[in-house]
């Protein structure tokens, strides 16, 4: 039962590996920019603001495309 609970807890945050990886990558790049002072902090903010909705959109489109292919048998 503990294994099942742990698996479900991880599942709270990771459902689609693509989306989870994209979120972490966006945060990592924004974090690196902000902490290394390679760019002003607002650049990190802008990056997050653009990358996260884009990651969501890409994940949804991928799932919809996969579902559409399965439906048409392609």
């Amino acid at each position: 039962m503990i294994g099942a609970i742990v698996a479900q807890l991880i599942g709270l945050f990771v459902d689609d590996e693509f989306l989870a990886t994209a979120i972490l990558a966006a945060v990592a790049v924004a974090g690196a920019l902000a902490l290394s002072a390679a760019a002003p902090a607002w650049v990190a903010g802008l990056l997050l603001t653009l990358a996260l909705p884009a990651a969501l959109a890409a994940s949804v489109v991928r799932s919809a495309w996969r579902a559409s292919r399965e439906t048409t048998g392609g």
């Binding site: 709270l12 945050f13 990771v14 459902d15 689609d16 989306l19 989870a20 979120i23 996260l52 990651a55 969501l56 994940s59 949804v60 799932s63």
Partner: peptide
């Protein structure tokens, strides 16, 4: 991770 998963 939690919110975008719900939204997706």
């Amino acid at each position: 991770m939690f919110g975008l998963r719900w939204l997706r």
